[in-house]
Design a binder for these strands. Structure first.
Ligand SMILES: [Mn+2]
Ligand SMILES: [Mn+2]
Ligand SMILES: [Zn+2]
Ligand SMILES: [Zn+2]
Lengths: 153, 153
DNA sequence: CGATACTTGCAACTGAGTTGCAAATCGGGT
DNA sequence: ACCCGATTTGCAACTCAGTTGCAAGTATCG
């Protein structure tokens, strides 16, 4: 769930992270900011307009460096694909909904303190990330409004 | 978290599910039962003793049919790999811990009613599965006792 | 500007998982 | 026990997200 529309500035973020401000990084970062939900490397790559061509490999590498710098957050899914969202505008502890048909991922509300309190102590290991996701059929797909990808249902 | 050691009988499970009782299915099922934690298709395949050779593709297909029949449950991970556990001996709603170094997955305690109550209603979609997982470093890896896979840390 | 370190693009590769298809096996009916 | 259609298996070829090696290009800083 986004905490107010995205105000993160690409250049500023890169600056603060000590990363070189290359066009590729700015283009990818803008794509993630533009999206109103977590998106994949493939989506970013495909949605690039000719003027902002970036090699597919570069998209992966840029996302990796942005994630390492804490600028974007990676979200894994049941189908093994990685989705990315801006770290600055999304609470680090919130659940996601993943539609098994159109494969769109949406953010749900943040997890309450009490839930995390219950989960973390339950594991006697060195935890560093908590991930909660709900899989199912999104409203659009249930009403058959979506044909974005194929098969399932 | 396992609810008492595994008492599921392969033949019985297949029977009840109306699936043919082939050696391959029994072998794979036994491997999942034998494991004390969720395992991958690759682990199953590699750990097969010569006497119970099963083609790798068959392992995938068997796991798919077992999952569809509700005999095993698939658990996705951050690294895109699928882990499987016996459905009969694991509460359908429990969290998992995934070690980013040795990639072993362990079951944590079941999720309290109140957590699910909080999560499910938060999404106005047709939900069909809830997945909670914690990523980090397991105790063995923290103490550097494990070298099961490579890189990370 | 020029040296140096970092980043990009391309092509080849990896590895989990899938698919098409012919051969083997299962199982219900006789 | 035997037959035949339905299911399952094995193999080889394929897919596809993601990775890697390396030479060429670009950012940054003095
Ligand atoms: Mn989110
Ligand atoms: Mn489990
Ligand atoms: Zn959908
Ligand atoms: Zn470990």
């Amino acid at each position: 769930m986004t905490t107010g529309q995205n105000h993160c500035d690409p250049l500023e973020s890169l600056e603060k992270a000590g990363l070189q401000k290359t066009i590729q990084r700015i283009v990818v970062l803008r794509a993630v900011i533009r999206a109103d939900r977590p998106i994949t490397a493939a989506e970013i790559y495909e949605d690039l307009d000719v003027a902002e061509r970036v090699n597919k490999v570069t998209v992966y590498r840029v996302l990796a460096s942005l994630e390492e710098a804490g600028i974007v957050r990676g979200i894994p899914t049941v189908d093994g694909m990685n989705y990315y969202e801006m770290a600055c505008s999304h609470n680090p502890l919130h659940a996601h909904f993943y539609c098994r048909y159109c494969r769109a991922m949406t953010c749900l509300g943040p997890l309450g303190e009490e839930i995390c309190q219950n989960l973390y102590p339950s594991c006697r290991h060195e935890a560093d990330a908590l991930s909660v996701s709900i899989t199912g059929l999104c409203n659009d797909c249930r009403r058959n409004k979506t044909k974005r990808k194929e098969e399932p249902l």
